[in-house]
Nucleic acid binder design. Structure first.
Length: 480
RNA sequence: GGGGCUGUGGGGUAGCCUGGUAGCCUUCGAGGUCUGGGACCUCGCGACCCCGGUUCAAAUCCGGGCAGCCCCA
């Protein structure tokens, strides 16, 4: 009989908030016991998943012409304050360090004000363009609201890309490419579907011309912002006087963009979209262990069984294979443990398998076991791809039917209270629309997330709040 | 932004109202018997979030801080 212990999850996923708190702890992803608001320790299992995310993300970025850099973790006050709307937006969230040589330093909340002065030094001519750089690292934001591990934190583990171009057209093309990267990596590889939303002007990145965020609908009906991309235009290049010479010998300001996928946050979506009542389910492409081999032995046959386990491991050289040969845990204990940690495949081998020259394969997402002959050894790469595809399709299925057309604020409230996203006709996403936005946000508790960034939707009719001509089709949802 | 609740070994909790002995489950360590879906026995280690106040005496009452959870806008 199953006893209640601190090892397994004690709540179902439908109780999402508690489920999330338990899973990040019990699957050994993070530890929050340093008791520092907004900060946490990422444990080996979590760190290895994040490492895998970085690898996949950086490979994709490099293939598209981005080069790695490492920038300082601190920014001089003078730099940070060069661009007026930037500092206005970020000042309340800056961790300030003490003055050193009469200059105050900030822990970087984002790195535009480090990259742009370097662009000024590195870029002289159109021949130096485009310049596409990135760094992996942390940024720090003093969030004063309630924080939650990985979801809303004061230190964010991410990649930030900072790109410079000769023309606005090229910069805008980059913004679209950033969305493609999110699609290719986060959606296709990690299995997380999203909506690319062009944010209302009042919700854009401080210092950007416009911002496109990717919204992921979580199982509890709230949206979480995943990678966002920003057209900075010439705001930063003007503030830092970063110019280049065109083919005609004219001097012009650079056009810049920024893109920021946060690994620590994407992990939230991976946990939440794929996990189940038993624990995590990690995509094959992200799991630190591809296959866990659980040998089932007695003191008498231990040696034989372990030898057989090694034999099977050697057939799977190209993958991360681990043999769990700890003899102080029973097989059942190990099954629960590795299911909680989300390993996609498990191979069980004991006396039966050894005699018959077979193995028992357990598949985490379907929960099915099958007996496979060594002669017909499975193509693990293919099984892994199918595994990831099932996770992605399942996640997509959760999104289906979650967007509903609404004609009144009451309908919006009903939709968002039922974990859905409201789609409505809207007057304006510029200053003119702020009043309507405030009204809706007050009566529904949800936010105007923006318009679809990669699809041009034409509204027919009027703004559902003020009744003026609708110019946009916007999406509204609750958010973290 | 506003309100409420909570903090006890590594984890989960009892005790708090009514001040005086920190109890239980689990984990962990040693030894032994075990090993096909969270095995069992014996022995052992380990805690009152921090600072101040009241008191002969504080986990308990009071004030502040820090941290966490929930609800509303």
């Amino acid at each position: 009989m199953k006893k209640e212990s601190n090892e397994g999850l004690t709540v179902k996923k439908e109780n999402f908030s508690e489920w999330y708190s338990q899973i990040i702890d019990k699957a050994e992803l993070v530890d929050i016991r340093l008791d520092m608001k907004g900060f946490m320790v990422i444990r080996p299992w979590g760190a290895r998943i994040i490492e895998n995310m970085y690898k996949i993300y950086e490979k994709e970025l490099q293939e598209r012409g981005h080069e790695p850099t490492f920038m300082p973790s601190v920014i001089p006050e003078a730099n940070l304050k060069k661009e007026s709307s930037h500092i206005k937006g970020f000042t309340p969230e800056v961790f300030w360090l003490k003055e050193i040589n009469k200059e105050k330093l900030a822990l970087r909340p984002t790195s535009e004000t480090l990259y742009t002065p370097m662009f000024k030094l590195w870029i002289r001519s159109h021949r130096d363009l485009p310049l596409k750089l990135y760094q992996r690292g942390s940024v720090f934001r003093l969030d004063t609201k309630a924080t939650r591990p990985l979801i809303r934190t004061r230190e964010i583990l991410w990649i930030e890309c900072h790109d410079a171009f000769a023309t606005k057209k090229e910069a805008e093309k980059q913004v679209q490419e950033d969305i493609e990267i999110t699609e290719k990596v986060m959606h296709q590889k990690f299995g997380i579907p999203f909506l690319a939303m062009k944010r209302p002007s009042w919700d854009k990145f401080a210092g950007a011309e416009y911002t496109i965020g990717s919204d992921v609908l979580m199982p509890d009906g709230k949206l979480i912002q995943q990678p966002s991309t920003h057209l900075m235009g010439q705001k930063f290049s003007k503030a830092f006087d970063a110019k280049f010479k065109t083919e005609n010998g004219k001097e012009e300001y650079l056009w810049t963009t920024a893109y920021g996928p946060a690994m620590s946050r994407i992990l939230v979506s991976v946990i939440s979209m794929h996990g189940d009542d038993k624990g995590l389910i990690l995509p094959f492409s992200l799991s630190p262990v591809s296959v866990i081999i659980v040998p089932i032995f007695t003191t008498a046959n231990k040696e034989k069984i372990l030898k057989y386990a090694e034999e099977i491991k050697n057939k799977l050289k190209d993958f991360e294979i681990k043999i769990d040969d700890r003899d102080f845990y029973t097989p059942g204990w190990k099954f629960h443990e590795w299911e909680l940690k989300g390993v996609p495949f498990r191979i069980e081998i004991g006396e039966k398998e050894l005699k018959a020259k077979t193995l028992t394969l357990f598949i985490r997402d379907t929960g099915k076991k099958e007996i496979i002959s060594l002669k017909k050894f499975p193509d693990l790469k293919k099984l892994g791809e199918q595994f990831d595809e099932r996770l992605r399709k399942n996640a997509e299925k959760m999104m289906e039917g979650r967007i509903v057309n609404c004609k009144t604020a009451v309908e919006i409230k009903k939709a968002v209270d039922n974990s859905k996203i409201a789609k409505v006709n809207w007057c304006s996403l510029e200053e003119a629309g702020i009043k309507c936005a405030e009204s809706v946000e007050k009566s529904t508790g949800a936010e105007i997330r923006g318009t679809l960034a990669n699809k041009n939707e034409k509204p027919l009719g009027k703004c559902i709040i003020c009744g003026k001509k609708a110019n946009e089709v916007v999406y509204i949802g609750k958010s973290y």
